[in-house]
Amino acid sequence: MDGHRTGTADTRARIRALATGRGRPRRPSGGVLPRTLPWESAMTRMWPGTKIICLTVLTSALLLRPMWSTLAAVSVLLLAGSVAARVPLQALPRLPLWFWSGIGGAMIGATLGGGLWIFVRSLAVAALVVWGSMLLIWSTAPDRLTPAFRSLMTPMRWLRLPVDEWSASMGLALRGIPSLRDEAAAVTDTARLRSGGKPPDGFKEGLRLMVDIITASLSASSRRASDTGRAMTLRGGVPPVPRERVRLGWRDGIALVLTGAAAALVVAVAVGAIPDPFQVLGPS
């Protein structure tokens, strides 16, 4: 009984330390795949299809018209969404030193070639696209995304397209993200143990280590995908996608209105109806 009480007290103390931000484990370096945040927020109460629509519109605006005004508008919306989702700083991936070294070297080369602002803008576009995708995963459980995809692709049934098969494939891919994350973490920890925690000596050794980690992760993921395929075949094929009732609330309306306003701003600046206030940073 005393041991049980002591264990319970230790568990409560650990939970209290995590809640107050003390005693949190150090985040591993490297590109960590995001996971759904374990709490309710304004973003989680939205219909997943609304978030998919907003992300599609913002990503399309970034890729079609990567102007400075577009970058600013999308950044403001993603920042507001991150605040609404209550994303903590601990959820952000901690990129390794070699990544920042490569960015610094590329920036120096772009500066010498006269394309510094073009490089910065391209880097910002890539970062915003990744940020939007991570925000969608942070605020939405994978099992809710599949029915939302199916609802959004319902009009394609008129063209006799395999909507159910596509939705099931997306669902399987989303369910495989945690497995891929676990496999990558296990391979990275194994490589770190074999090297004794020492960083690789030189660029070639670091590149070789990265290739080995990627190859091992892909091999393990392929083996797990093969096992999943065999299990699906034994159970009768692709499982049906559950239907979800579309329920839109005031949060969905606000998100759609803000996204529409950002898209209208991008179009107005593109056609010249509104001057680009960030034109001083370089041509768009």
Rank of each mutant, 00 (worst) to 15 (best):
V130F: 11
P283T: 13
V83S: 08
D182R: 12
G30F: 10
L193N: 06
G253V: 09
G236K: 08
T215S: 05
V32Q: 15
L112Y: 00
R230W: 07
I177T: 12
P66I: 00
D2Q: 14
A148D: 01
P155Q: 01
L89H: 10
D143E: 13
S41W: 14
R94L: 11
S219V: 07
S195W: 02
A9Q: 13
S133T: 05
P66K: 05
P34A: 06
G109T: 11
W158G: 07
W47D: 09
L33M: 11
M134S: 10
R121L: 01
L33C: 07
V246L: 09
L265G: 00
R247G: 08
L145E: 00
W117Q: 14
I118C: 01
P240E: 06
A270I: 00
V57Q: 05
G171L: 05
L180F: 02
G196I: 04
L71Q: 02
T11D: 14
G115I: 11
P240I: 08
I274M: 10
Q90R: 15
G282V: 06
S284C: 08
R208H: 14
L172T: 14
T259V: 07
L123I: 03
G102D: 11
P142W: 01
E40W: 10
G171F: 04
A185I: 07
R224E: 13
L207H: 09
L248W: 04
R247M: 10
S101Q: 13
E244P: 00
A186Q: 10
T20N: 12
D276E: 15
K204V: 13
K198C: 08
R157P: 01
L159E: 00
P283Y: 06
P155V: 02
S221P: 03
A264I: 10
R243Y: 07
R24E: 07
T70M: 02
P162A: 04
R65G: 00
W47T: 02
G3T: 14
A85K: 09
A185F: 08
K51Y: 03
L79C: 06
A255G: 06
